[in-house]
Design a protein around this nucleic acid. Structure first.
Length: 947
RNA sequence: GCGCGCUUAGCUCAGUUGGUUAGAGCACUUGCUUGACAGGCAAGGGGUCAGAGGUUCGAAUCCUCUAGCGCGCACCA
């Protein structure tokens, strides 16, 4: 008998204890050379700079659920963890650190700065992986990867070089998204557009008026465009006008881009500072004049001396200051016609929220078209499925509208681009032809060499003055390789053979385009095989009102705090039971976590009940793997049969729902089974056996309790790994479990672990763990009438309790007279003990004909009429009200049914089963109505008032 | 502008292919120191399923429209 278990479950020590044992016992590692099917997940690598937030907690709870489920189902399961170097984010963090010391990265220089980042990474980068351990994530840490590892760097270089050789990468001068704060280019999707109130300034440009949202860029205007057939401007076609303030002559061009109806129908064209203008510039061969520095200030370096002089007060002004000043100057000159309120979409840097500047610069691009085609096909043909399905459309929409991907970043932290420029001097070939020329006889070779390793000499000129491109890759350019670079690619490793393609990718919808799409493209291109067959998309974690969690709102819940207070199991279960919806955002609240914590406590106490009621002499009854129903059969009570049948259903339901990614459903089914069936009913029912003197019945009850508990722990393990392992090990160590031949049993009472800081001395696969046990299978379904019988008994018990509550008799014993149907009589004979016990009934009289006892309260359950004699207590008004309510209900339903059943349409068109069903229902209701009416009649007579 | 999602009890959400009287948790009311659990037990109250129209014998469920909320995508200066 175990009686020293705490009444309240305390997760803190338990969780850390088991995680340590699992990890040290190597349980997270897949088997080597396994004949089993593999099941692989790669973690969406969190940023090294990050610490665990609720989004990670949700994401990893789901992955761990899947991986533990598959592991228990006999798969060779591998979950690869790792972190992402997160170029901009990490560089920002370290720069901020430097700033505290009053330094900038330029003070250090590239090499020292990078060393500093590595240092920082070593010190803080492991934080999030420690936190994932607290969550219970069963990933194989021996295979942990970092996107800047040598192996992964090699993969990135291969990625780039191969694409370049295939003509899918090019370098060019384009308008890109430039963040003046981060001072780097960004890809299109790294720009967040936001509608903002602004103005449309109408400016007088000589004889016409242009409308613009960006007056400050006018310094770089090189044309004004009008619609080709816009007659309003016919007189200006082919003319030039003078650019205000600057004095430059610029042409009027005709371009289809212009919308006649918008503004004045005349657009100022600034090819160096606007993507549309850039394209117009290309079409019309316009000069491009850059008027901004990389940090967003006005520069006049491309202006003539005269221009510089004229505009010198603007030089070095911030772009927004410059806007004010330029508008002011135009106004002074009477060139500001009007200012119109206007809402416009403005791009912001996704990292630092600074307003993006369209900027002209040399960058590397991936020609994504051919890659995207494959990615579209793989999804359209069903090799890759999105769950829920609606994300398919989002993915396809994005994939079919792709522009080339700018992959170079002007950062120091990241994979430096393996492109090299030859800076050797060579003879200028032109000078040989025009030997008279005075121009220099030599120039720089400028050959571009793309190579995984630094070339020793230039293949073109043989020179050795070779410098590497200073830029680094977009972080996502390396993340795209994650499903195979983590397995060793480009080397052909055994892991790559065994575990690629991976199976499921679990992530949130906000990075479908950043990451998922690119992994698909890279996987298909390099591995010739899709990187995963299923993409499970979950929502974002929001607060209870659906608001984003953010520090400034003050509504952030810290997962670590929750884990410390309520346990990782509670947090996990809260999430997993919340995601019933189809990829909707998850609204997390303290209440929800408390609920899950209470659930853990409930399980704890149910287990405690089992342990406390098991005599210490009790020998192993359950063999871990091969438990047959026969183990418990022979002498099963009705309740036993019922809970075993319900367990069977639960095994089927939970398994099915996990397989179909309905995790919330699965969680709810477990919750309802454990709390609603096992605790509320079965445990209570078993008490009459447990407390009886009949040794056999006692033993039988314990067997079933342990059996059901043990199976339930397995089912619950992927959801709540810690508490289930703890209880399971307790069962094992108290000798209540034995395992089958493959799982040698530990000697009784031997402590499973040796102490908090002591390494456990036996680390081997032989030691049984719940996390390595087999997932329960559905036993061949016996047609069990116990389900109907117990449902009936439960309803009866509830009805009796209801009467008792009505008369405040809950604590008192009452008598009961029942008149059941034949079938129900059998149920009653089998279950009357439960009624006595659970409804506190002293005496039950089962009669064949109705004879209403005087002064009694009545009930109707199924076809059974029942009476609780309440001599001297009956309150006629109360009784009448009770019956009236019942009558109203019955009459209401009956009316509806009657109407339905006289409808010729229904009778003719509805399937016969449906009609039959309704007819039965009608009969039942009519019977019930008769009974209720009879009772009411009795009540209204003075029958009850006399003895 | 295009696309997607949501709208069910006071709150947060379930409700699988249409089929009796629409469910759960929290909150609420009432009663319980019942030998696992007060982080508990028992009994209750509470909803014209956003609105309108349609399909159907039958609609919370399928279709159309409307409204409100949220989110993506989009180079109209």
């Amino acid at each position: 008998m175990v009686d020293n278990i705490s009444k309240v479950y305390d997760p803190t020590e338990v969780e850390q204890k088991w995680y340590k044992i699992w990890e040290e016992s190597g349980l997270f590692k897949p088997e080597e050379d396994s004949a089993k099917l593999s099941f692989t997940i790669v973690i969406p690598p969190p940023n090294v700079t990050g610490s665990l937030h609720m989004g990670h907690a949700l994401n990893n709870s789901i992955q761990d659920l899947l991986i533990r489920y598959k592991r228990m189902n006999g798969f060779n399961a591998l979950w690869i963890p790792g972190t992402d170097h997160a170029g901009i984010a990490t560089q920002n963090v370290v720069e901020r650190e430097l700033k505290k010391e009053g330094k900038t990265k330029d003070d250090l220089g590239r090499e020292k700065f990078i060393a500093k980042v590595w240092e920082w990474k070593k010190e803080y980068g492991g934080r999030i992986t420690q936190q994932l351990r607290r969550l219970g994530a069963s990933c194989d840490w021996s295979r942990e990867r970092f996107t800047m590892d040598e192996g992964l760097s090699k993969a990135v270089r291969r990625h780039f070089v191969q694409l370049y050789n295939e003509g899918l990468i090019y370098r060019g001068k384009r308008i890109i998204n430039w963040c003046p704060r981060c001072q780097t280019a960004l890809s299109d999707i790294e720009v967040e557009h936001e509608n903002k109130k602004s103005h449309l300034w109408h400016l007088k440009y000589g004889p016409l008026i242009v409308a613009t949202t960006r007056p400050e860029t006018m310094l770089g205007d090189t044309a004004v465009a009008v619609k080709p057939h816009d007659e309003r401007y016919k007189h200006l076609w082919e003319k030039t006008i003078e650019l205000p303030l600057v004095g430059r002559q610029i042409p009027i061009i005709k371009d289809d881009f212009v919308d006649i109806a918008f503004g004045t129908g005349a657009v100022k064209v600034t090819p160096a500072h606007d993507p549309n203008d850039y394209e117009m510039g290309q079409r019309h061969n316009l000069p491009m004049i850059n008027v901004l520095t990389p940090d967003g200030k006005i520069t006049l370096q491309e202006f003539s001396a005269e221009g510089k002089e004229k505009l010198k007060e603007l030089e070095g002004l911030d772009r927004f200051k410059a806007r004010e000043r330029i508008v002011q100057r135009l106004e002074e000159q009477g060139l500001l016609v009007k200012i119109e309120n206007y809402e416009t979409s403005i791009g912001h840097c996704y990292r630092c929220k600074t307003i993006i500047e369209p900027y002209l610069s040399d960058q590397w691009f991936v020609r994504v078209g051919p890659l995207a085609e494959k990615g579209v096909a793989a999804v359209e043909e069903g090799q890759i499925k999105f769950v829920p399905d609606r994300w398919t459309k989002v993915y396809l929409q994005w994939m079919t509208n792709l522009r080339d991907w700018c992959i170079s970043r002007q950062l120091w932290w990241g994979h430096q681009i393996p492109a090299y420029y030859c800076k050797s001097e060579i003879r200028n070939p032109k000078s040989e032809i025009n030997s008279k020329s005075e121009i220099q006889n030599t120039k720089l070779c400028e050959e571009i060499i793309v190579s995984e390793t630094k070339p020793e000499k230039c293949p073109k000129c043989g020179g050795t003055e070779i410098v590497q491109d200073p830029d680094v890759f977009d972080t996502w350019f390396s993340s795209a390789l994650w499903p195979f670079s983590t397995l060793g690619w480009p080397d052909e490793t055994p892991d790559l053979k065994t575990f690629y393609p991976t199976d499921v990718l679990v992530t949130s919808y906000d990075i479908i385009s950043f990451w998922v799409a690119r992994m698909i493209m890279a996987g298909l291109h390099f591995m010739k095989q899709e990187p995963f067959h299923t993409v499970y998309i979950h929502g974002l974690v929001k607060d209870i009102h659906g608001k984003k969690m953010s520090k400034s709102w003050g509504n952030v819940i810290d997962p670590l705090e929750v884990i410390n207070k309520a346990g990782a199991d509670a947090l996990r279960f809260a999430f997993l039971s919340l995601i019933a919806g189809q990829g909707q955002d998850v609204k997390l609240s303290e209440d929800r976590i408390t609920e899950a914590r209470n659930f853990a406590n409930k399980i704890w106490n149910a287990s405690r009940f089992v342990l406390m009621n098991t005599p210490s002499s009790f020998l192993p009854l359950i063999k871990g793997e091969n438990v047959e129903r026969s183990e418990t059969s022979g002498g099963e009570t009705l309740a036993d049969q019922w809970i075993l049948a319900r367990l069977n259903q639960t095994i089927a339901d939970v398994s099915r729902n996990i397989e179909t990614y309905e995790f919330g459903q699965a969680a709810h089914q477990l919750y309802d089974f454990i709390w609603g069936d096992f605790c509320d009913w079965y445990i209570e029912m078993s008490k009459s056996d447990l407390y009886s003197d009949d040794k056999k019945r006692k033993e039988q009850a314990i067997k079933v309790l342990i059996y059901v508990l043990e199976k339930t722990l397995r089912l619950l393990h992927p959801f709540m790994p810690f508490i289930t392992e703890e209880i399971w090990q307790t069962l094992l160590s108290t000798n209540l479990l034995s395992t089958d031949d493959k799982m040698p049993c530990l000697p009784a009472r031997r402590p499973v672990w040796a102490g908090r800081n002591k390494r456990i001395e036996t680390i081997n696969d032989q030691k049984p763990f719940l996390m390595k046990q087999a997932w329960p299978t559905v036993e061949k379904q016996k047609e069990s009438e116990s389900l109907a019988a117990v449902e009936y008994l439960k309803a009866l018990i509830t009805a009796i309790r209801n009467i008792k509550a009505n008369y405040s008799l809950q604590t008192k014993e009452v008598d009961l007279v029942l008149c059941p149907s034949v079938k129900e009589k059998a149920y009653l004979l089998a279950g009357q003990g439960y009624i006595k016990q659970l409804a506190k009934v002293a005496k039950i009289e089962i009669v064949d004909t109705i004879e209403t006892p005087k002064q009694s309260s009545s009930l109707i359950v199924g076809e059974t009429q029942g009476f609780v004699p309440l001599k001297g207590l009956i309150d006629v008004e109360k009784e009448t009200a009770r019956l009236k309510k019942e009558q109203d209900n019955v009459v209401g339903s009956l009316e509806r049914l009657k109407q339905l059943l006289v409808s010729p349409d229904f009778l003719a068109k509805a399937p016969p089963e449906a009609v039959a069903k309704q007819k039965v229902a009608q009969q039942e209701l009519e019977d019930k109505l008769k009974i209720v009416s009879a009772r009411m009649k009795e009540l209204s007579s003075s029958f009850y008032l006399f003895i």
